[in-house]
Design a protein around this nucleic acid. Structure first.
Length: 405
RNA sequence: GGGUGGAUACCCAAGUGGCUAAAGGGGCCAGACUGUAAAUCUGGUGGUUCUACCUUCGCAGGUUCGAAUCCUGCUCCACCCA
């Protein structure tokens, strides 16, 4: 096992806060001297299907702990998911059914396995214990926190101030999450910055149960592809770990310049000195994004896929057609006796736009061209002759080869 | 139980009888530009057989030449007081 100093250097990268840090050092020191690994908890609620880069921030940290010889303990919050994490929310989460949560949980685990070594990790569902609880047990848990403590919490305080509803079940969330730590005897718990409240609740519960309190370690919240708001499924600004390479790469390239440092720090192991060099003034930010994009794609799909994605992107941005052009079959009866079709109809028939009205607007805006010579037509009333193999482009990204069928 | 406020297009949010397919912002799409699918700028953003027509403002009726706007009933939501 590596020394405390060595471990700390790796573990500190990208971390927002370790509270209290001194206590963490002691735990780490004890672990090094006794050879007993730390139990590092990370809880994830299976509320959706897509694990995105935002989730990978703490997961990557967990992976680092694993690589240093510590024990990763993953909590699948199948019961907390039924409540909905109020953290960072200004609204109540939508209710999930137990069945949905069950399906999600399974799917989550396979995705998480892309980052964590699941063979070496402990995985628990918090339904394993909460499912056995009686109402009296619940009452006993609620006895441990006051309304004042709950409502002092930033998320709730904001909602109360904004006259938005705060439901009782949401108040249970931090207590449940805290109790998970008691059950698995956590030494460290990872979470986003906003999780600090919940992570601290666990300490009190653990002490009451005669355990040493866990050390919350918080990670910054990754911003989404819009560069401002947190990355999240509901905001539609996320990059999923299971997304195709080209899509991941493209989204990285279309990131605003500002959040790049955060992405490098939190999502890669590229040395920070190297990151400084890439982001230095005078260096084309595009190049930095390309490095970032390759690295992200490499992590999930390998080096070859990363290279291919970068190539495809370069081609496309220089105006060339990509190597692989999707083919769409167009029925011959869509054409008139001269083999022609109205452009808006063609675009809709090929699935490039959702309605002829919308297609017309795009055409009038100059977003349509076709064929090898890329002739642009801006009159939506024009019909064109469609031959087998015709290339049809709408905007920069939508290109299709017509197959007459 | 009492009171108040609310339900508008993908989201937020104006609009309280005609000039409203419905302000503004966000998002998204397209175009220009470019060191980038960044930033900036421009245009667009219900549908169709498209200089016109059809459908839309919680639901159902009604008044009116004409309603997102007025009336009646209903459903849903929130907040406040108890």
């Amino acid at each position: 096992m590596r020394s405390v100093a060595e471990q700390l250097e790796i573990l500190r990268r990208g971390v927002e806060a370790i509270v209290p840090e001194g206590e963490f050092l002691k735990k780490l020191g004890k672990s090094v001297s006794t050879g007993i690994p730390l139990r590092v908890k990370y809880g994830i609620d299976p509320t959706g299907i897509d694990v995105h880069l935002g989730h990978t921030v703490p997961l990557r940290k967990l992976r680092q702990f694993q690589e240093l010889g510590h024990t990763a303990v993953i909590i699948i919050g199948n019961y907390t998911a039924l409540v909905g994490d109020p953290s960072g929310r200004d609204e109540t989460r939508a209710k999930l059914t137990e069945a949905q949560v069950e399906i999600n949980a399974k799917d989550y685990l396979t995705q998480v396995g892309r980052i964590i070594d699941l063979d070496r990790a402990e995985v628990h569902k918090n339904g394993d214990w909460f499912g056995k609880w009686s109402f009296l047990d619940v009452l006993d848990l609620t006895r441990r926190m006051t309304l004042g403590q709950i409502s002092a919490r930033d998320d709730f305080a904001k909602r109360i101030a904004a006259e938005k509803p705060v439901y009782l079940h949401e108040c249970l969330y931090p207590l449940m999450q805290g109790w998970d730590s008691v059950e698995i005897k956590a030494d460290v718990e990872l979470g986003g910055t906003e999780q600090l409240f919940s992570l601290m609740v666990a300490r009190n519960l653990q002490v009451e149960q005669g355990q040493a309190p866990q050390i919350p370690m918080t990670m910054p919240i990754l911003v989404g592809t819009d560069g401002t708001r947190r990355m999240g499924k509901s905001l539609g600004n996320y990059i999923g770990v299971a997304e195709p390479p080209e899509s991941q790469f493209g989204k990285i390239m279309s990131l605003p310049d500002e959040p790049m440092r955060q992405f490098f720090t939190l999502l890669t192991d590229i040395p920070l000195a190297e990151v400084d060099r890439l982001l230095a003034p005078g260096v084309n930010p595009r190049d930095a994004k390309e490095v970032l994009g390759r690295e992200i794609v490499r992590q999930y799909s390998g080096l070859d896929a990363a290279e291919a994605a970068a190539q495809a992107f370069r081609k496309r941005s220089s105006g060339e057609d990509p190597d692989v052009i999707p083919e769409v079959i167009l029925s011959r009866d869509q054409l008139d006796e001269n083999g022609q079709i109205l452009i808006p109809r063609l675009i809709v028939a090929l699935g490039l736009e959702s309605s002829t009205s919308n297609a017309r607007r795009v055409i009038e805006g100059g977003g349509f061209n076709h064929g090898e010579d890329r002739s642009i037509l801006i009159n939506p009333k024009v019909s064109i002759v469609v031959t087998d193999g015709l290339l049809v482009r709408v905007g920069k990204r939508k290109i299709v080869r017509v197959r007459l069928g």
